[in-house]
């Protein structure tokens, strides 16, 4: 298998993966979406809420705010040694908020959450959580814990985790009349005209829609769009909770763990 990084920044990762197959790619994608743990607020104790939003709505908004996650320092509550309903310092982080408005209406942002662990803080401190009119108050205590995307979407570490086949575009130059119909119809602007000749400008953007093949007036078509059977482009967009490369590393670890468990159970079963 050959992996090449096409694009990488804080939240995005685009990989070209060659000599792989669909079952593996799909397993990694599904694990990244549903099984890789991340931190999110799960329980909220309202001490005082005189704002115009209901307790439940504020709790929901707090839950959806992504938190920076430290996977090595915390356990999943169901795997933690404490086995306590309320959690312990290894599986729970307490965040508090005490906001009021003394002068006119103001917006309360996620940055006003005070965490007991300075590493576990909201990804962005500019998320508007609610608005308070003069004299209104909000005081709460929130408990964040690790969880999995299959239990609630707030624990999903990725917003996009998708793969597609690696495209292969062939221009049959002897048949092509350079009418530029394929260039105009392409929704992803993969093709371009250069010195009155059609050329492939951005191969990786192609989503294999085949519009260019249909638009070609030549019969048979002068453009051929195919894909490589064993090469993929994988796109991972993190919510900010974990770096995207960490998410895919965790996904491989989880797949490994699941396969090992399957093997052990199989051995026990067939004996």
């Amino acid at each position: 298998m050959k992996i090449e990084v096409l694009e990488k920044d804080e939240t995005n990762l685009r990989l070209s993966i060659k000599e792989a197959d669909v079952p593996l790619m799909n397993a990694l994608r599904r694990i990244a979406l549903a099984e890789v743990p991340s931190m999110a607020i799960d329980e909220v104790v309202m001490i005082e809420n005189s704002s115009i939003l209901q307790d439940e709505m504020i709790a929901h908004r707090l839950g959806l705010t992504p938190l920076k996650t430290d996977l090595d320092g915390y356990n999943l509550p169901e795997e933690c040694k404490c086995q306590s309903e309320f959690g312990c310092s290894l599986c729970r982080v307490t965040l508090t908020m005490d906001a009021d408005s003394t002068e006119g209406t103001r917006t309360v942002y996620s940055g006003e959450l005070v965490s007991e662990n300075p590493q576990i803080i909201p990804v962005s401190d500019k998320v508007p959580l609610l608005k308070l009119a003069k004299g209104q108050k909000l005081k709460l205590e929130a408990y964040a814990r690790l969880g999995k995307g299959k239990n609630h979407a707030k624990w999903q570490p990725v917003s996009v985790c998708a793969y597609k086949y690696f495209p292969k575009i062939e221009l049959l130059s002897e048949q092509c009349k350079d009418c530029a119909k394929c260039v105009d119809i392409c929704p992803k602007k993969v093709l371009a005209m250069k010195e009155n000749k059609v050329e492939v400008r951005d191969l990786l953007a192609c989503n294999l829609c085949m519009d260019c093949v249909d638009a070609c007036p030549q019969k048979p078509s002068a453009i051929k769009v195919e894909w490589e059977k064993d090469a993929f482009i994988m796109n991972i967009e993190s919510s900010g909770a974990l770096p995207p490369e960490r998410i895919i590393q965790e996904a491989t670890k989880i797949l490994d763990k699941q396969l090992k468990e399957f093997e052990e159970q199989l051995k026990v079963g067939v004996k």
Partner: peptide, 11 residues
Amino acid sequence: VRCFTCGKLIG
């Protein structure tokens, strides 16, 4: 706070 469809933080 997040996109209803994909879950990206937009707030």
